[in-house]
Design a protein around this nucleic acid. Sequence first.
DNA 1: CTCCGGATCCTCT
DNA 2: GAGGATCCGGAGG
Length: 231
Amino acid sequence: MNQSPLPAGPQLREFLSGDARELAPLLLGAVLTHESRDGVVSVRLTEVEAYLGPEDSLHPDPGSHTYRGPTPRNAPMFGPAGHLYVYFTYGMHHCTNIVCGPEGVASALLLRAGEIVDGLGLAQLRRPTSKSPADLASGPARLAKALGLTTADSGRDALAPPFALELPSVPAGPVSSGPRVGVAGAGGSEQYAWRFWLTGEPTVSQYKAAKPRARRQAAAAPPGTATFDQR
DNA sequence: CTCCGGATCCTCT
DNA sequence: GAGGATCCGGAGG
């Protein structure tokens, strides 16, 4: 039992102050817990994506909400590591990030998928449309829903009650990586292979590339205008 | 102020 | 496999 202790408390926050791309594989297998009035739900992270801020001129990240600098919405991403950044999208979905990097530097990990390891009943109550336990948090909006998180939680400290974050006691297993999902433009290309997941995990999100939506009053597409359909 | 389109999920075919 | 749902952040006039 002479192993170096896992980062916890202030050490964990310091640990999270590193580069999100390096932290991403290390956070796979970590367990995020949220206790609410309705009960406790814990998710073991199986898939995350790194997003950076405008500070790193060597790696501009056009896929990041912070690409154009700080705004009221993305402010938590510029704050201290270990806090949550939750945003609302598509008029109906919430997605959760854990802020990384030193204070003042925007960086975060989008929590894309996980396995419910505690509070299965409550998670099922929150996600009645899921068909199996593996579906409960197999997608960023599903994960946020299962944990009961909304924009009201954005900026809150994930390392303090009613939240908790625990790193895996042993490396969680083989890690795969690939391009980020649903990011329009260059930010979703192979150049940004900042999505990491636990190889073979059934909870990893089965995703389709975000399809470009028809614009309002768009003229009919000229024939031969091929659209991308990558998977 | 108006307009565009998204770090998505679900249902129906 | 395709389309709809349904808000709001951010940019530009």
